[in-house]
Design a protein around this nucleic acid. Structure first.
Lengths: 177, 177
DNA sequence: ACCTGAACACCGTTCAAGT
DNA sequence: ACCTGAACACCGTTCAAGT
């Protein structure tokens, strides 16, 4: 065994996450990632089949971290909502990739467990799934629009988020159509 | 004037839209677009400053078409919602770019006029803006998740959309928190 | 005036050759 | 066993030269 490993998959993914966040997806090149971990680009192909596989691994790591954040947030829907938004603000580039074909289904399901629990606490187990979907769709769309700058049309964005959150909370808590 | 124009900006954008929809953003190369309109890639730089400017023009055309569709839909929130979803299904690749920094703010505002009117019809002029935002965020997030395949976890997606739509409609119609 | 071939920098990817 | 230089195909972009 003349050559020990000079890096690890985890180190490569972490380097890729940093490059993604500071320069966007276009900056996430095999050469940039390789340089950051101290190897040459061809070495990365021992670890990831191609650039797409590396991006997929980056998104998987992002989704797992998002899930951890939601787990640690206060367990009601308000806590989950604000943790979700805080994560999107800290990692806008990575967040934008969470709802693309790069994301794998089982990782998304694991990360959504805290949302499902918070929804169940509000509306009961029976209606938890549709309620969680309604909430997640709204929060995801809101953040996507906020990150894209679609809210520059005046008005306080923090207040708009809380307005939507409280509206959804009260409507979910009272009735199911 | 020895050389008349061999193409037009509109033709270039239309070609780019077709390539985007059939092969995704990565397939939208200057060479592919040029070939489709019968010129060489360098000619496109007479019309668009760079690839980013061309993609921006593609998104602007998409947003304008989306606005036309929403205008022609039946003017209530149900009609607008289903027209929005139908457009996303027909043009998933283009739709995905609508809420990114490629989209320009004034184009988005024009396209959202029908949503604002439908919201006003439901909740009155005073609360139309927050209601329209709540609806748009939900619909956008739902479609983003649907297109990303995040709803494969069983259940009828059409029913989930209508469930969310009716829930939002009734909660908007009854009370503002 | 518009278009193009040629050129350059850069990227993804492969692979034979190094240690 | 892992890493790399060299090579190839491809892309964005510029520009002098064609008509």
């Amino acid at each position: 065994m003349p050559s020990p490993n000079r890096t690890t998959n985890e180190e490569v993914v972490a380097a890729a996450q940093e490059i993604l966040e500071s320069g966007g997806l276009a900056a996430l090149t095999m050469q940039a990632v390789a340089a950051r971990v101290g190897v040459r680009a061809p070495s990365l192909y021992k670890r990831f089949h191609d650039r797409d596989a590396l991006v997929t691994a980056v998104v998987a790591a992002t989704v797992a971290e998002l899930g951890d954040r939601l787990e640690r947030a206060s367990a009601d829907l308000r806590g989950v909502a604000h943790a979700y938004r805080a994560f999107a603000h800290e990692r806008p580039q990575a967040f934008r990739l969470v709802f693309t074909p790069y994301a794998e289904e089982d990782a998304l399901r694991r990360a959504s467990a805290p949302v499902l629990r918070a929804a169940a606490a509000l509306v009961g187990e029976t209606d938890a799934l549709p309620a969680a979907r309604l909430f997640t769709a709204w929060a995801t769309g809101f953040l996507q629009m906020e990150l894209a700058g679609a809210f520059r049309l005046g008005g306080n964005v923090d207040e708009a988020f809380d307005y939507g959150l409280e509206h959804l909370r009260s409507s979910l808590a009272t009735a199911q159509p």
